[in-house]
Design a protein around this nucleic acid. Sequence first.
DNA 1: GTCTATATCAGGATAGAC
DNA 2: GTCTATCCTGATATAGAC
Lengths: 176, 176
Amino acid sequence: MPPPPAARAKVLEAFTDLLVTSGERSATLDAVADHAGVSKGGLLYHFGSKDALVDGLVEHLTDLIAADAAAMRADREGPVHYLLRTSSDVGHEFDRAYLAVAELARGAYPRARGALDAAEQAWTDAVVEEVGDPAVARAVVLLSDGIYHRTSLGAAPPPLEELLTLVDSLRRTTTG
Amino acid sequence: MPPPPAARAKVLEAFTDLLVTSGERSATLDAVADHAGVSKGGLLYHFGSKDALVDGLVEHLTDLIAADAAAMRADREGPVHYLLRTSSDVGHEFDRAYLAVAELARGAYPRARGALDAAEQAWTDAVVEEVGDPAVARAVVLLSDGIYHRTSLGAAPPPLEELLTLVDSLRRTTTG
DNA sequence: GTCTATATCAGGATAGAC
DNA sequence: GTCTATCCTGATATAGAC
């Protein structure tokens, strides 16, 4: 297959950026086109409708989930550290895509939730491999969800070291 | 002062219900009026604008925060149990109002975040009184935020007993 | 492939009857 | 106090030129 046109990627990136920084309401076709540096007509050549644009972003996130799970497992500090430290990170591609799709799922596109559920499952699986106890793993992912909740509301994330210390005590309690 | 007209309360309740069950996008003036059983004109008699309707709900939540903090402290099972078990509860008035205002804050009304911050602070204060360690208290509130995150996305909440057990081990670890 | 219109529709708000 | 009717604005989508 031919390489996807650069304009497609630019449009998806602009859509993501608007969703993360200004919310779903502001991510109109006009705004996305402006932000991507194309006209509205040009945008609608690549994505035939708003729904198609949403689908494009959801599929992009789905592609990124496997890559993120692999990055968790390969992380020098381990999956738990990776998950908790990136949960408030709006700088990396995966986290931006996750937050963007979460905006869509809470807004006019509930079908976007499938990809979010898949991400949650991938995180839990990777954390279980590190901590052993599934209950502790679920709690770690739930803490991560809490950080996402605050981030999506614009509040400050909690201190990372404090959380890591608590997770360490939990692991010692349940494994020894 | 005279008692507030029943229509006002009906409208606020309808607004809350639409926000919690169908998201911010669906809570239009038309939909709220229909749901409350009044006409759009009737709604706009009580609340002169959409902004005024939003302010009405935010003020209602603010009123409920102090009452909820008192209920936490008075709870037979304690503040932690109260907080974690009610975080996915969309049946009680306070939780419904919180979720509704969170929808607004994530949507077109970021100013609604002030009331959410106040709730977070009230929860943390009450939990600190029970568990002592502020770090553990912040983690408990963060778990509660995670449950809210899932609830606001329409996902199933995690098992309560499992979380309570983990919090108990944390408390034993940090206090003894 | 990308642009400039323009049609269509929905939500918010106003005016005025009852 | 509550209703109906109407206006204004902005967002999606289409048509057709370049």
